[in-house]
Design a protein around this nucleic acid. Sequence first.
DNA 1: TATCTCTACTGAACCGGTTCAGAGAACTCT
DNA 2: AGAGTTCTCTGAACCGGTTCAGTAGAGATA
Lengths: 341, 341
Amino acid sequence: MTVTINDVAQAAGVSKGAVSYALNGQPGVSDDTRERILRVARELGWKPNLRAKSLSSAKAFAVGLVVARDPRLLGTDPFFPAFIAGIETTLVEHEYALVLTVAASAEAEELGYRKLAADSRVDGVILTDMRVDDSRIALLTSLKIPAVTLNRPETPSPFPAVCMDDTEGIAAAVEHLVSLGHTRIGHVGGPQSYIHGRSRRLAWQNAMSKAGLEAGSFIEADFTAAGGLAATTELLRSPKRPTAIIYANDLMATAGQSYAQSLGLAVPDDLSITGYDDTELATYLNPPLTTVPADPLLWGRVAAQQLLSLLGGAPAEDVYLPSPKLVVRASTGPAPSMPKN
Amino acid sequence: MTVTINDVAQAAGVSKGAVSYALNGQPGVSDDTRERILRVARELGWKPNLRAKSLSSAKAFAVGLVVARDPRLLGTDPFFPAFIAGIETTLVEHEYALVLTVAASAEAEELGYRKLAADSRVDGVILTDMRVDDSRIALLTSLKIPAVTLNRPETPSPFPAVCMDDTEGIAAAVEHLVSLGHTRIGHVGGPQSYIHGRSRRLAWQNAMSKAGLEAGSFIEADFTAAGGLAATTELLRSPKRPTAIIYANDLMATAGQSYAQSLGLAVPDDLSITGYDDTELATYLNPPLTTVPADPLLWGRVAAQQLLSLLGGAPAEDVYLPSPKLVVRASTGPAPSMPKN
DNA sequence: TATCTCTACTGAACCGGTTCAGAGAACTCT
DNA sequence: AGAGTTCTCTGAACCGGTTCAGTAGAGATA
């Protein structure tokens, strides 16, 4: 049926071992023989059997990704699909596959990694959504699974990080709003247990104080539309209502914008809004959203590259991707001279 | 290091074969011996080696999904992440893994399946985004990969289908709008090369004629926000402008709604709008979107179940999931008595 | 010419399971 | 008691590669 290395050996009149050496470009066969073996293999249409290779070489030729999200909310995050697509662009070139696990809870997440390890499904994993004091670092260290993290965690990590600075974009958003005359700029952030939730809040805070402004109201939300709405409600109800709100992602910003408009506030005349991600929809909102384009495709591609080179024995070194730049659209405008209250 | 079946055999004082029979619940060992072997295996902490199992049993214990989308637009589709999460809920229970491939082009898609087959990475695949006259059916048949399709293709297919009727929801949307007095109801559909693009258009068309109305303008778009905008532009520019538009998904509806509002049209006073999917954001728009909730989580779960039972040798039978029901929100309202033109 | 070294290659073990043919033992049937 | 059947278990082959120890032969060296 299928052509094995044995068939090639027989047809070429050599031993199994010689064929293996020849096919893997290893020393041990003369150039003549090597060439003959390769030709015979080609003629017979030999294809390596991944399963056999996996067993004897103790490698999976696959990398893993465990996504810990509420499945119902997973669809709202534009990050993952594009990120995964980015990973794929690298993997296909190296004959690797991606094994994806979705975990609904923290226990399921840990179990996901444990299963990947127990079954040796993967040779390494990519860690996304890094958390402050992330338990996965110790877990993967104990499971002896090589990994790459998105951004460098604050706690010590033996794994190389692929970093994309998000503070610059947020700072640019603050500066942009300040230049438009805003002084009361609120922030609706993601969970502060995530390092990207935290870094965006700190970026906002630092940029405000650098502008000589008091960092106004901050609400910790959860990156969902529902959370964005709730946070916006709270911000707009406060006595010193902000004239601009910086959201930690587009989804919350969109929900916030819609809510503000439903209250009769004009965006940007009464309230300026910025997001983060630059989802496709951002351009097509009314008004189109000022936001910061994350580049999940690039991030995924480079993260996979780093993981593969780590698996290849390369030293673990952090990589820095270019910081995304603020994209100004119509959801931001001059601060109202007489804010509605 | 790791405990193998050999260690268990030695410790239990039986042969390798006996251990294999005992661990797999197969006949060939007495109850006493079986129990002893199981106890010894437990005591030694034996875990099956998936790679060895794969090689000897010629199974991958994994299923595949090839997603053919423009990576940049993939993030905008809320369907996939939730669908994948649904698949996972089934797979984890059966010790199966999901191998995901993202393909940017038609060639890459075919190559994706070919690679999964060549490396025997998976035991079966799930086909989504079924197209009219879908070439993948012949491809997978020739590659001898079992599959499950989402909805039954119009051309003959040997694979079981997991069906979720979308015509009922679209018909309900038409009826809902008709009951509100609308007579000019347009449709912005997905590519008609997709069966779900086609079936939604036909559902709209049939419901219109059933209501005694002339099926108004139809524009074929591409499920993206950009496409939704372009189609809306065209519809609103037409001489007999519709007072209501049924979009084939939420993303296009959202873009359409924003665009209409940017023209100064009020939704729903001047224009009623419906979507399809019921994304999280739909609830939080201004106005919230009337739409039809697809249930990708359920769909994924059942599709994976069907695939696994197919792999287990069950006969290929179609499954029908409950048809999603229209969710009425504020983006639809009475037809304007004097439509703006 | 005898010895040493190096290269090219073979045969077998190995990775960790599954599966099959066959050997004994026990049990049933006549 | 002898023959046939069933049950339990063993040993070995097998899945398709990788890798290692060892050998034959060619070429270099003394």
